[in-house]
Amino acid sequence: MSTTVVNAEAEGKTWGGGNQPLKASYGKMMMWFFIVSDALTFSGFLAAYGFSRFKFIDSWPIADEVFTHVPFLHGQELPMIYVAFMTFILIMSSVTMVLAVDAGHHLNKAKVTLYMFLTIIGGLIFVGSQAWEWATFIKGDYGAIQTKGGNILQFVDTNGHRVALRDFAIADTHDERTAHTRDNGLWFVSEGSLPSYTVDEVYAGLEANENILVRTQIINDEGEKTVLSREESLKQIKENGTLVVEGANLHVNEYGSPLFADFFFFITGFHGFHVFSGVVINIIIFFNVILGTYERRKSYEMVEKVGLYWHFVDLVWVFVFTFFYLV
């Protein structure tokens, strides 16, 4: 009889419910599993980017030449500096988040409030920086000509420095076309903004400037884009040039393959959306902290859970940074 009782007690301990084999609460575990699935989503996007890049390995844009801008420093070529700053901001806001979690373990309401606030500020700076990065990318810099086959031809001087269309194209004032608008044309047809120059104007400018050459998308053995000879440059623009491209959108991209722009918008946009929703969730938790919800609960585990999400957003950025800007 006594043995039976002992057995029942042992069973009650293991199978009677109420124990946590992973020593983590339900909410925290579910956050981890959500993070795994979200990580797989992001890997899917980045692997698809890798697929497209390997598919066009000899003509993919060189990120260093695309992202060279820093706010307030116009006309200077500073590759990577601004993205490095953004990375640092995000890592920094991760640090304040983990400090908030740590303060939560000590039930220190004032410190949790301060660190949550700093985390939110960091997140906002990051999202703002990303918006600026997008705006710069969409606006473009030098302009280029797209060929019949969809390739991009850019312009360089004899030293290999990029030349903007506005610096050499000869505008023909008699040949200006006004953009079609709905109120003075077909109401069901819309037209985007027109490029500043036509292909003919660019060709005229190229003919007049002896020192300008065309650079193609093809990457040579030295890892640089191929520059054509003077005759070949004139021939390519004359025979194949179909469209003046300024900036980047989902259809055309002055920096090279449109796929690059598509993936840039999609992946950094999806990540930016994560940062944005992270900021919103952080703000909700921030107000809960101020209101004393977790103080009354005697547990700041909620801060820990949003912390996991916030760190995950940082983790994804580390990979986006590498695969979009470095590799």
Binding site: S43, G44, A47, A48, G50, R53, K55
Partner: peptide, 17 residues
């Protein structure tokens, strides 16, 4: 899962190239 996906897609990308 990530290593598997990367292997498959990069292999295929190189092949298409």
């Amino acid at each position: 899962l990530i290593l598997y996906l990367i292997f498959i897609l990069l292999q295929e990308g190189g092949y298409v190239f």
